[in-house]
């Protein structure tokens, strides 16, 4: 059973079945990314996923075009699939996380630039 079937169960719509067929045609990396995006999108949307259909379609299309152009997952989505999916779904965490994210941003920049400088 695929991930999508597990999530959507008997509610699996024709749209999502078509997505699943398209996903099967993707290279392994892209397919994994698609499933991860799906997991995150569902945590933002309603359980049936009805309102997520156009977004998922767009995300899948992006991965398809990327693979057709020989672009890797990292190149089109980056290494933050959770953040990417949250932005797609038009939602984000609670405002009280903001200070933590702010610190995280500066810390990551400092750490990565230091590593770069050797």
């Amino acid at each position: 059973m695929s991930f999508w079937e597990a999530i959507t169960g008997s509610d699996l719509t024709r749209d999502w079945k078509a997505f699943e067929a398209r996903a099967q045609a993707l290279p392994a990396d892209h397919r994994v990314a698609w499933e991860q995006i799906g997991t995150h999108l569902f945590s933002h949307g309603s359980f049936t996923g009805r309102n997520l259909t156009p977004i998922a379609d767009a995300a899948l299309g992006l991965l398809e075009e990327a693979s057709a152009e020989g672009q890797g997952v990292h190149e089109v989505i980056g290494d933050d699939i959770a953040g990417f999916s949250a932005a797609l779904a038009g939602e984000a965490g609670a405002g009280n996380y903001r200070d933590r994210w702010r610190e995280q941003l500066n810390r990551n920049v400092a750490r990565k630039l230091a590593r770069l400088g050797g």
């Binding site: 980056g78 990417f84 932005a87 984000a92 996380y97 941003l105």
Partner: peptide
């Protein structure tokens, strides 16, 4: 990359 990651979260 780090800024984009932050902005995706802050939204």
């Amino acid at each position: 990359d780090e800024i984009q990651r932050y902005l995706f979260k802050v939204g």
